[in-house]
Amino acid sequence: MNLSPNDLIMLFNDVFRERYRTILVKGSYEPEYIPAQSPEAFARIVFAHGYFSSALHEISHWCIAGAHRRTLHDYGYWYCPDGRTAEQQHAFEQVEVKPQAIEWLFALAAGARFHISVDNLSGDGASDEAGFRQKVRAQAERYLFQGLPERANEFFNALQSFYGTRESIIKDWRQDADRIAPLTCASNFSRKIETV
């Protein structure tokens, strides 16, 4: 399947451009959210280097940002670049669970391969990569079976329709979940207890 970021731009802008006065655009360097500078202007979600996965990730952040946060540059979030300390990395991983869970479901809906990102290659790496993977998996599973936030759900549905993945999404999820974050014996045991 040919995965073009131009298709994501078209889909996102078709679904959200007029209603939310927001557009998705390719960037050259770092991703960034730029709020509208006037009532007639558009807010811009800029994704890095024209990468498909970067677009999905930045859209996922936008989908969970509330109305006030969407008036702030980069949603008003603190961001410390690659090379974070263990404490900074722990904070980063805590706020990345929901966006990465949504990004994962978007990737499945587009037929794309998702990769967990701890985004700290020149630092100490993940503070708890296995734990982070399990948290992202659990959140993605909750979203898939209990419902995504409203805007994320709209985009998820648009992706499934465009890429024709609606019928296979649950099967694809089950296969991908084990690739990204295999359940441990302890996790399987606790899940069996929860379902009894």
Rank of each mutant, 00 (worst) to 15 (best):
I59D: 04
D74H: 08
A43G: 09
F42L: 13
Y75V: 01
A41T: 02
L56N: 07
E58N: 00
R69T: 11
G50Q: 05
G50S: 01
G50A: 03
S38A: 12
R70M: 11
A41F: 04
R44H: 15
Y77A: 09
R44Q: 15
P35R: 01
T71D: 11
I34T: 12
P35E: 03
D74W: 02
W62T: 06
H57F: 06
S38Q: 11
A36L: 07
P35Q: 01
R70Y: 14
A36P: 02
P39F: 05
A65H: 02
T71S: 14
R70F: 13
G76I: 06
L72R: 13
F47D: 00
F42W: 13
D74T: 04
S54A: 15
Y75C: 02
Y75S: 09
H57V: 02
A36T: 05
G50F: 08
G76Y: 09
Y75R: 02
I64E: 14
A67L: 10
H73M: 04
I45H: 10
A65D: 07
H68D: 13
H73R: 09
H61G: 06
Y75T: 02
L72P: 00
H73L: 10
A48D: 10
I64M: 13
Q37A: 13
Q37Y: 14
P39N: 11
S54R: 00
R44W: 00
F42Y: 15
S38G: 10
F47Y: 15
L72N: 03
H73W: 11
F52T: 11
S60A: 15
A67F: 10
H73S: 09
Y75H: 05
Q37N: 13
L56F: 01
H49V: 12
H49M: 13
A48E: 12
I45K: 02
I34C: 11
Y77K: 09
G50K: 14
